[in-house]
Design a protein around this nucleic acid. Structure first.
Lengths: 181, 181
DNA sequence: AAATTTACGTCAGCCATATTGACATATTTT
DNA sequence: AAAATATGTCAATATGGCTGACGTAAATTT
């Protein structure tokens, strides 16, 4: 079927800092594509539930991080999501208006708006996470816990170095990781 | 504007806001977030190059898969990307007009348009992939090849079961995996 | 105390990428 | 000859980003 074949181009032109580089670059193409397909399927899991309530993926992301980090302020959320306050504003307003998220003045800095999930918000976050958890659980069952651990370490190493500590703190459930150096 | 009426406003973690009915699947939350952050950083790597040439991520995706699977037809590409032909049309037209991709009639079915990267397209695909490869290479160096293998297996297990064979074929570089059951 | 900076909100417009639906054209299959 | 298929295109719409400008309240600096 393959009538034309260009072969695989060589990838990295920087073998200087490669002490144990024995793998061909083709292996890295695999990772590009695996990440693409895995993410594509994973991220679409909650779409059915979202469209049911008239929300999109942006709402899901905001609700997820508010639920996981109750009491974070708007600036922290912007920093996590890497979007502008205008973009956040639109979805956050809807989440607040429809009772999924509530705001409170910062106790030490009254300019801040700390964000909390309501009971309704927590329930929805859980409902949205469920199909993603199911996907992860099935993958762990298929590959074993060791590969999940390897994936965790590898994915963490993929995060921008400058933000890895922040992400690690967020995974631990720390508060205020943005402002604690 | 802020309606405040639940839980404790303390900035420190307060366990009283957590519903106790959910299962302790906290380990799966890690994966949700790691996948989000790793993908977010990985996918933004080529943005600088893309904006230089007036393209977006959609162009990158198309060029990537055409380059990796020279001679695939439009239907195959639509199946990989899971977008509509109208969406593909816009970016594909630009890629063709600007000389990154060429089309050819299918040899057995002249209705088909087989897609090939031009020399220019291959060069650009390589240039766009380079920062992503660098990120992967750094991650492998940091975690070891074993974790990268674990990540590969885990990510593959995350792909929709119905398409896993197709993806595996695509990774191997097969042609026409869509129509070879 | 006044000036400046910060945190947040909002209006307005624009861009990239996706969607649905309708329709056209060439080619293959029935 | 008719039907199905592969592709392309026009038009309208949705989502989720962006920049720029401006306003307000509270904290910080001078």
């Amino acid at each position: 079927m393959a009538d034309v074949n260009f072969g695989r181009p060589a990838a990295e032109s920087d073998p200087q800092t490669a002490p144990e580089t024995e793998l061909p670059d083709t292996g890295l193409y695999d990772l590009v594509e695996l990440l693409f397909f895995a993410y594509r399927d994973f991220i679409s899991d909650p779409d059915a539930i979202l469209s049911e309530i008239g929300f999109g993926r942006a709402h899901h992301r905001v609700l997820h991080f508010v639920n996981r980090n109750p009491g974070l302020c708007v600036a922290d959320l912007l920093d996590i999501l890497k979007i502008t306050k205008q973009s956040l504003g639109r979805v956050l307003k809807q989440l607040i208006d429809e009772g999924y998220v509530s705001q409170r003045e910062g106790p030490s800095d009254r300019r801040q708006r700390l964000l909390f999930p309501t009971a309704r918000g927590r329930a929805m976050a859980l409902r949205l996470a469920a199909p993603q958890f199911a996907r992860f659980a099935a993958a762990i069952e298929a590959t074993g816990e060791a590969d999940a651990e390897g994936a965790r370490r590898f994915l963490m190493a993929m995060v921008n170095e400058t933000e890895r500590d922040q992400v690690a703190a967020l995974l631990r459930g720390d508060q205020g990781s943005r402002e604690t150096p």
